[in-house]
Simulated scan of single mutants.
Amino acid sequence: MQLSKVAFFLPLIASTFAVAVPDAGLKEAAVLQAKRNDFEKRQNCVPNGCKCNPVPQGQYCGWCSAVTNPGNGGSWSDVFECNPSGGCCRYGPRSSCNVWPNFSPCGP
Rank of each mutant, 00 (worst) to 15 (best):
V21P: 06
V19T: 12
W76I: 08
F17S: 01
L26R: 15
P56G: 12
F80S: 12
V55M: 00
R42Q: 14
R42F: 05
G58F: 02
N37P: 02
L12D: 07
F80D: 00
K41E: 01
F39D: 08
C64S: 09
T16P: 01
P54T: 07
S77P: 14
G87K: 00
Q59F: 09
A20F: 15
G58K: 09
C82M: 05
V67T: 03
A24E: 13
G86M: 07
E28P: 02
A66C: 06
K35E: 15
P22N: 05
F39L: 00
C88R: 00
N53E: 06
P11C: 06
K51T: 14
A20N: 03
C88D: 01
A18N: 10
V21L: 15
A34V: 10
P47L: 07
G58A: 00
G62M: 01
G73L: 06
V21K: 14
K51G: 07
E28G: 11
S85M: 03
K35I: 07
Q59C: 11
G74S: 04
F39C: 03
L32T: 12
C82P: 01
D38K: 09
P11I: 04
C88S: 03
K35P: 04
C82Q: 02
I13R: 06
C64H: 00
N53D: 08
V21N: 13
G62I: 10
S85A: 08
S77E: 10
N83T: 11
K27N: 14
Q33N: 10
A20E: 03
P11Y: 07
L26V: 11
C61K: 05
Q57G: 08
T68S: 12
Q59W: 11
W63V: 09
V67G: 05
A24W: 13
A34Q: 14
V31A: 15
G86F: 05
K51Y: 08
E28D: 13
K27S: 12
G62W: 02
V31S: 13
T16G: 07
P47I: 14
A14N: 08
T68Q: 04
E81Q: 04
G73I: 05
S15M: 11
D78L: 07
K27L: 09
C82D: 01
K27T: 07
C61I: 13
G62P: 09
C61T: 09
K41A: 02
Q43L: 00
G49T: 01
T68E: 04
S15G: 14
A14T: 10
N48P: 01
L26F: 07
Y60F: 11
N72T: 02
P11V: 04
P84D: 09
P22K: 07
D38Y: 09
N72H: 08
E40S: 05
G49I: 14
Q33H: 11
N69Y: 00
C45K: 00
G86K: 08
P56R: 13
P84I: 01
Q57K: 02
A18L: 13
A24I: 06
G73E: 04
P22F: 10
C45A: 13
S15Q: 04
A18H: 04
Q57H: 09
S15W: 09
N53F: 00
T68F: 11
E81D: 12
N69R: 03
C50S: 15
L26T: 06
D38T: 11
A24C: 13
I13M: 12
A14M: 15
G25H: 11
W76L: 13
C52S: 10
W63N: 03
F80T: 00
R42Y: 03
